Simulated assay, not measured.
Amino acid sequence: MVSITADILISGGLLVSGTSITKMDVVVTGEKITDLLPHPSNIDAKRIIDAKGLYVLPGLIDAHNHPINLDKMDSFTLSAAFGGITTVIPFMQNMRSRGIDGTTSETIDRFIEESNEISYLDFGVHAILFGDDDVEIEVPKLIENGIISFKMYMTYPRRGMMMPDDRMLKAMSLASEAGGIAMVHAENGYCIDFLTDNFIDEGLTSREYYAKSQPRILEVEAANRAATYASVTDCPLYVVHLSAREVLDVLRGYREEGNYVFTETCPQYLDLTNETLMEHGALAKIGPPLRERADNAAMWEGLQNNIIDTIASDFCGFSKAHKYAGG
């Protein structure tokens, strides 16, 4: 018997790493994995979990979520834990549109204080910057407080969420100078509103016109524009929830030129298509919209070729009633 006493021994499971699947024992002391040993390791432990015949995977990080609607950090992190998630990185924004006073940095301070009390999981925070945020004040202050990632919307101008291009450039410049990273929701919001208005004027408001109001070219254009701005300001860029296959070649090109461009897709863009929207209606209405089977295949290929870095949920916590009401 090895003279080591661990808190937990996960024994005899099939350990999945980045390169292999091997029968191993996982030794846990406190809240840390302290050793990985060939099975049987004969480690003495206070608690032994028999993982024979089971896969043992590293804890997952969900780097994109919005627990600000029905779910807060208690119920959200509890459900995430049941799905194998051990760390979440939510987005937090100013809540002035919901009648709650305060800047983005003040809102994030309150969010962190509350989450420290109620979260079941480790967590980080991304900031969202809206067009009404004072980026000259907020970006340096947030970075000083350890929040180094800033998401900006290139769409939703009528909701007051879109960041004007000149302010985006300023935010990227400030982030670059202080070691931050810009993130974007890449869709051309003005074009979407133009197309939407035209469809409404023509009485074309049924579900088959949703994807047509947000065509793939508008994601490609916005991603290219964001990457251009990031290149000009020498700011690292993270483009969230990619859905259109053409955007991968665009962003690959910026990488090949030496720019720091990181990419993300979501499970829904790996598996679902616009046919899901046609079948389920509002429940499958998301932005960017679900695309086609060829786009699913391209996202999988992007993961295999390391063009896509991250899979994240983009969880928002809406109810069915909210979705059917147009939320």
Rank of each mutant, 00 (worst) to 15 (best):
N198F: 02
D309C: 10
K32L: 05
L78C: 08
R252G: 05
T77L: 03
V88I: 15
M299E: 10
D309A: 00
E301F: 08
R207E: 10
Y190T: 07
K46M: 07
D133F: 01
I307M: 09
G131I: 11
I181Y: 08
I143N: 09
P90K: 01
D314P: 03
D35V: 04
D35S: 14
M183Y: 02
S173R: 13
A297C: 00
I4N: 03
E275H: 06
M73A: 01
G253Q: 14
A312F: 05
G146T: 09
N65Y: 05
V27P: 00
V139F: 13
Y269M: 05
N69M: 15
H39Y: 12
G203P: 03
P40V: 11
S119H: 01
G30I: 07
R255D: 02
C266V: 05
S313K: 07
R110E: 13
E138T: 14
M299S: 05
A63S: 15
L303P: 01
D109N: 03
G253S: 15
Y209S: 06
S213Y: 05
R225C: 07
Y156I: 09
I217W: 11
I21N: 04
A175N: 08
I10M: 09
T228H: 10
Y156G: 07
L248H: 00
S206N: 13
I286L: 15
G302A: 08
I286Q: 07
R291L: 02
V247T: 13
A127G: 02
P157K: 11
D295F: 00
R293W: 06
A80Q: 11
I49P: 08
I112W: 04
S176L: 08
R98D: 05
P267S: 14
I89G: 06
A297Y: 11
Y153N: 14
H39W: 04
E257L: 15
D134T: 08
K32P: 00
D165S: 11
D309G: 01
V139L: 03
L37A: 13
E106Q: 15
L283W: 12
V28H: 01
T205I: 15
L9M: 11
F111Q: 09
C266L: 08
A298S: 15
Q93V: 14
V26N: 03
H185Y: 11
